[in-house]
Every structure is written in structure tokens, then in C-alpha cells.
């Protein structure tokens, strides 16, 4: 069996197609495991994993913790808000203190882009990036592609549009890397102010009109507007944003085909997506969450198998 080409999962940028295929094939087996009545396997019983979250999270943190527990790893949870980081401790010091308690793997979310890469160069543990600022969120992109593969059979050749706040979105960047790597076509759509200037250099097209974009695509990935990362106003009002870039039942019904709707969460109902769409059979939002656990189990399992005893 091939091994992953990397020792850390810092971003999709550092993976190749074979890695993604391997992660998906492994996730298939874990998906079967988490649907058993006893959902636990003993593979990682001698591994300790620290979940270090310097930024808030619900889904990702729970999903990682559950994945680790289902693999029988020992889990340490750490949130920056309740820690000595507030007292002025540096990132390397914090992590090295945790590692001296014999931790093998670190799952980290951090508001600064590149925090995971920086850490991987300075500490001796396998690092999984659970989101670093507006840079990458690799496990989210993997679970998104996995969900598309599950729903449509494969990712290669499919047309995917990513709608919303592309500028502040790590989900968008990781998704673009992952989808391109698997041979999908990608377009982005959103207010001009929220589209990065050189996005075309990644091989994606900008589609200013949502309706045209939806007519083109097989899958629409709706992103949340990240108000917490906006220090200035990028569009006039939320109402105007919704009218131009929000998705609703009438819009979907007026298309001549049924497209798949995705959302990485958390949803702002009534802003980028209406409730009737989010809860419809076209939406695979909750499948994404379920697949998230299987994908994270696969990533942790594959990285852990490279740790020597």
C-alpha cells in the first residue's frame, strides 16, 4: 500500500492526486466503521493527539475529537481563550510544553496564515492544519470533494462553483487546490470586492453572475460571509448581498437541471442560503458533516502510521 507523500497535513497545496485517492479509499472503510453499532477501532491506542484551537470552532473541533476517539487515540483539548496564551506565551513555547507531555500529533487552528507550516519546522510532531487564517483548511476541502465523489460518483470532470466571500475563505482556497488536482472545473462567484485580485492564476474563472454560474455548474458550494474578518465594508448591505448572491428555492427551480448544494457551515440562514434550500434533498450539508469524521479518521490514521514506535 502506498503511503502519504507528506508527514504533516498543512494544506492541499502540498498533496498530490495519489494522496487524495489514498485518503478517500481509507475514508471509505472508516465510513463503514462509523456506521456500525460499535463505532470504535483500536488502531491508535498508543497515540496521543492534542487539539489546539486558537480560534473558535464547533464542527471542526467536534469532528476531529470524535475521529480521534473513534480511532482510540488519547485526546488533549486546548482552547487559547482559557490558556496561558493570554499571559503572553509564544506559539512554539505553548506547543513544546504540550509536546513534552509526550504528544504525537497536533491538530491546530490558528488565526494567522502559515501558523501550521511555521510550527512544523520547529516542533517534533505530526501537524494537521485545522484552518490557518484565510489560508487553508485541508480537511474541509477533502471532505467536500469526498462528498461530491459520493454523490456524483467522481470529482474529475465535474463543474463546481464556489459562491460568496472568496477573499477571506480558507475553505475556498483549499477547495480550489483539491478540485483542480482531481481534474474538476472550478469557477468562483461573489461581489467583486470579495474576489481576490489574482484568483485566475490558480486556474479558476470568475463568474460575476450567480444565475449564469448555477446554470453552468453541477455543484454549488455556498460560503458564509465572514464578517469577523472584515475590518471594513465590502458591500453595501446584507440585503443587497442576499439579492445578488443568495440562493433560494425559486432560483433553483428555474434551472433546467438539479444541482448539488453544499455549505461548509456555519450557515447564516436567509443570507447566502434560504432554509428551504438548506434543508432540501438537493443539499448534502449534513452528509458533509458525517463524511468529515470519516475523512479526519483517514487523515489521522495515515499520518499516524508514519510515526515510528
Amino acid at each position: 500500500m502506498p503511503a502519504l507523500s507528506v508527514r504533516h497535513l498543512l494544506g492541499i497545496k502540498y498533496l498530490n492526486e495519489k494522496d487524495i485517492e489514498l485518503i478517500f479509499e481509507t475514508a471509505d472503510q472508516f465510513k463503514e466503521v462509523i456506521n456500525r453499532s460499535i463505532k470504535k477501532v483500536p488502531s491508535l491506542r498508543d497515540i496521543t493527539i492534542a487539539n489546539i484551537f486558537f480560534e473558535n470552532s464547533t464542527r471542526t473541533k467536534l469532528s476531529f475529537e470524535l475521529a480521534e476517539k473513534r480511532l482510540s487515540a488519547d485526546v488533549l483539548n486546548f482552547s487559547a481563550s482559557q490558556s496561558s496564551v493570554k499571559k503572553g506565551e509564544t506559539l512554539i513555547d505553548t506547543v513544546n510544553n504540550i509536546l513534552s507531555m509526550k504528544v504525537d500529533m497536533v491538530v491546530m487552528r490558528h488565526p494567522n496564515p502559515g501558523a501550521g507550516i511555521f510550527l512544523s519546522k520547529h516542533v517534533n510532531a505530526s501537524i494537521i492544519n485545522a484552518g490557518d487564517g484565510a489560508h487553508e483548511h485541508p480537511t474541509q476541502a477533502l471532505l467536500d470533494s469526498y462528498s461530491i465523489r459520493e454523490k456524483l460518483g467522481e470529482v474529475g470532470g465535474k463543474k463546481v462553483i464556489i459562491v460568496g466571500d472568496i477573499l477571506h475563505s480558507r475553505v475556498a482556497l483549499s477547495n480550489i487546490f483539491a478540485l483542480k488536482l482531481q481534474g474538476a472545473q472550478v469557477k468562483v462567484c461573489g461581489p467583486k470586492t470579495l474576489i481576490p485580485k489574482y484568483i485566475e492564476s490558480l486556474g479558476v474563472e470568475v463568474e460575476p453572475d450567480l444565475r449564469r454560474g448555477l446554470e453552468w455548474c453541477d455543484v454549488a458550494n455556498m460560503l458564509r460571509v465572514q464578517n469577523e474578518r472584515m475590518e471594513m465594508s465590502y458591500f453595501p448591505t446584507t440585503r443587497e448581498y442576499t439579492q445578488q448572491f443568495g440562493i433560494n428555492r425559486e432560483l433553483l427551480d428555474s434551472l433546467d437541471k438539479e444541482i448539488v448544494i453544499m455549505h461548509p457551515g456555519p450557515i447564516n440562514r436567509g443570507v447566502e442560503i434560504t432554509s428551504d434550500v438548506a434543508d432540501s434533498s438537493q443539499s448534502i450539508i449534513l452528509h458533509q458533516v458525517e463524511n468529515g469524521v470519516a475523512i479526519r479518521m483517514a487523515v489521522i490514521y495515515l499520518l499516524a502510521s508514519q510515526l515510528k514506535t
Binding site: M1, P2, A3, L4, E25, T26, D28, Q29, E32, V33, V41, P42, S43, L44, D46, L71, Y301, L302, A304, S305, Q306, L307, K308, T309
Partner: peptide, 23 residues
């Protein structure tokens, strides 16, 4: 039944253990 995740030689070989499907 696939027993990969229950094996006792995890991390003891060069390559990851390859899992097959359970049905």
C-alpha cells in the same frame, strides 16, 4: 470482515496497513 484497524502491528512496518471493505 476486514481486520486492518484491529491488527497489532500498526506503525511497526514500513508502509501503512491497507484496509479492505467490511460487509
Amino acid at each position: 470482515l476486514d481486520i486492518t484497524f484491529f491488527r497489532d502491528d500498526f506503525r511497526r512496518g514500513e508502509k501503512p496497513l491497507e484496509a479492505s471493505s467490511t460487509s
